[in-house]
């Protein structure tokens, strides 16, 4: 059952990854990227890494991919033109791809020749069956590493202040809703009764 699920998700992941770079419409590319992230998250769940899966969905799908979508939709970039030099850059891409393929081959070879598990490779303490990843991280993040956790919060606060300091401008002449003013005004300040003569106009 797990095997079937793995192959289904892996197939979706690969297919959507291919579509990311082949789709004509950049918006479709980003949507396929999101699909790829979801499939990868499903694969992580299958190997018991539920924390990484959730982070992938929350951070990459929730924030990064949506940001991409905004950028693609808001910036008027001619993607056809960007593809122009495709043939020129293909050799470089092939070399990088080739290196990656060789590295993957090495990895597979070492697994076949001498599996890491047999050589006493790393295992989780305590085992995943007793304590899930999320629980394990929660146990130390808010206790052993509470200092780092709180200080990171301060760093994010600085980032927020910085973004506001560097970009917020108070523009003149912007009409804002002032509820206090709206409620405060009296009838005779805003309504004037005029006697309009017949056929005279105001």
């Amino acid at each position: 059952m797990v095997n079937i699920a793995f192959f289904v998700f892996a197939a979706i992941l690969l297919a959507s990854a291919v579509r990311v770079i082949t789709a004509k419409n950049p918006v479709h590319s980003v949507l396929f990227l999101i699909l790829a992230f979801f499939s990868a998250a499903a694969l992580f769940v299958l190997i018991g890494a539920e924390f990484v899966a959730m982070i992938l969905v929350i951070v990459y799908v929730g924030a990064v991919a949506v940001l991409f979508l905004f950028v693609v939709m808001m910036l008027d970039i001619n993607f056809q033109e960007l593809r122009h030099g495709f043939l020129r850059y293909m050799p470089v891409g092939l070399v990088v791809g080739g290196i990656l393929a060789v590295e993957l081959g090495f990895l597979a070879a070492t697994q076949l020749i001498g599996p890491v598990e047999a050589a006493g490779g790393p295992t989780a303490i305590p085992p995943v069956s007793e304590l899930t990843n999320t629980q394990a991280i929660g146990h130390i993040l808010y206790t052993d590493y509470v200092y780092a956790f709180q200080a990171s919060g301060l760093i994010l606060l600085v980032a927020m202040i910085g973004a506001i300091v560097l970009t917020l401008r108070s523009r003149k002449g912007v009409r804002r809703q002032e509820i206090g003013q709206q409620l405060d005004r009296k009838r005779d300040q805003v309504v004037a009764v005029r006697k309009v003569p017949t056929r005279g106009g105001v």
Partner: peptide
Amino acid sequence: LISLYIGLELQSLALYVLAAF
């Protein structure tokens, strides 16, 4: 090394903003 890096980043990030104040 973790608290080293976090202290350093807290300092640096605030200084980047101040430089562009």
